[in-house]
């Protein structure tokens, strides 16, 4: 009896700190946001007395906000796809390349995370602006007459987001590739598969969990990114996160801001669930 009880409580005690942290600082605030989203707008106060579904009807009635959600999801999707395309070969080299290359590349991969987010975003404005380094160089070389619109649009936001979120794509994929025995590829090739077929049929399915993790991380981080879109998107392109902060802090409409924030969360979560469903592994390896 004591043995089974000890077995039962041990893991609980170990996860308790994380559970308490999540409960107090995530679940409770979230519940508070849900309640807040149904409150009446206030006059001169963050919210008024009584409850309403008006915030949600306002959201669904105005195509402006729906479009903004779509826009935000689109930016998240493109950022994720680009991170995957750019990151996979790097992850491969990190997992399978030679040691000397690895140490250097590892540092380079992590480097975006070593710089503060505001500084990094200002860095991008210096590079991408109409009078920025890229446009000046290109006009100086006579390649373009007018500066390319690299800032205050979705393109600029995507460029900056890909830069900072790349490590979140590369690291899980690298770990997954490291878990795939290289002799499996040799085995596939000895059985008559080309390099590409061996990759597609053997390596790719086996590192799917890493690709999934990387994609979900980057997608979710892109949706909730605030500083980069607000500095690089400016007033012209707004993502949901920027609009939510505007509502909460600039116009002081807590119920409206909460409703917007929840709509972003719900659509984001829906996308993640659909993605996980689509890429679900068709094989389950029973552990005996």
């Amino acid at each position: 009896m004591t043995a089974t009880r000890r077995k039962g409580f041990g893991p609980l005690i170990l996860i308790a700190p994380a559970a308490v942290l999540l409960g107090v600082f995530l679940v409770l605030p979230y519940l508070n946001i849900v309640v807040m989203s149904f409150r009446m707008p206030g006059q001169g106060t963050p919210y008024g007395p009584g409850f309403t579904t008006g915030n949600y009807t306002k959201f669904f009635a105005d195509s402006f906000y729906l479009l903004q959600v779509a826009n935000t999801l689109w930016i998240g999707l493109i950022t994720t796809a680009l991170c995957l395309v750019v990151g996979f070969p790097v992850a491969w080299q990190l997992a399978r390349g030679n040691m000397r290359f690895r140490a250097l590349a590892y540092g380079l991969v992590l480097s975006p995370l070593l710089v503060g987010i505001v500084i990094r975003s200002y860095g991008w404005t210096i590079l991408l602006g109409n009078n920025g380094l890229i446009n000046r160089t290109l006009t100086g070389m006579g390649l373009i007459d007018r500066p390319l619109p690299l800032m205050y649009n979705a393109l600029g936001i995507v460029i900056a987001l890909v830069h900072v979120f790349l490590p979140f794509m590369i690291l899980p994929i690298m770990a997954a590739i490291q878990g795939v025995d290289p002799s499996l590829e040799s085995a596939a090739r000895s059985l008559g598969a080309s390099r590409f077929t061996a990759f597609r049929r053997i390596v790719l399915p086996l590192c799917t969990p890493g690709i999934q993790a990387g994609c979900i991380l980057v997608f979710v981080l892109s949706l909730s990114a605030y500083v980069t879109p607000s500095l690089i998107g400016g007033l012209r392109v707004k993502t949901m996160a920027v609009t939510v902060v505007d509502a909460l802090i600039d116009t002081f409409q807590w119920p409206w801001g909460s409703a917007l924030a929840l709509m972003l969360s719900v659509t984001g979560a829906l996308c993640v669930v659909i993605f996980a469903r689509l890429t679900r592994m068709k094989w389950k390896v029973a552990r005996t």
Partner: peptide, 30 residues
């Protein structure tokens, strides 16, 4: 001639069975 065109059967030290495939699927691959 590349490995996949040499028509060899190879057994590896760690077996190198494809973990995401059943016995039949492993055998069917080649």
């Amino acid at each position: 001639v590349p490995a996949e065109k040499r028509d060899i059967g190879m057994v590896f030290q760690n077996y190198a069975l494809f973990p995401h495939m059943t016995v039949v699927q492993n055998l069917a691959f080649g």
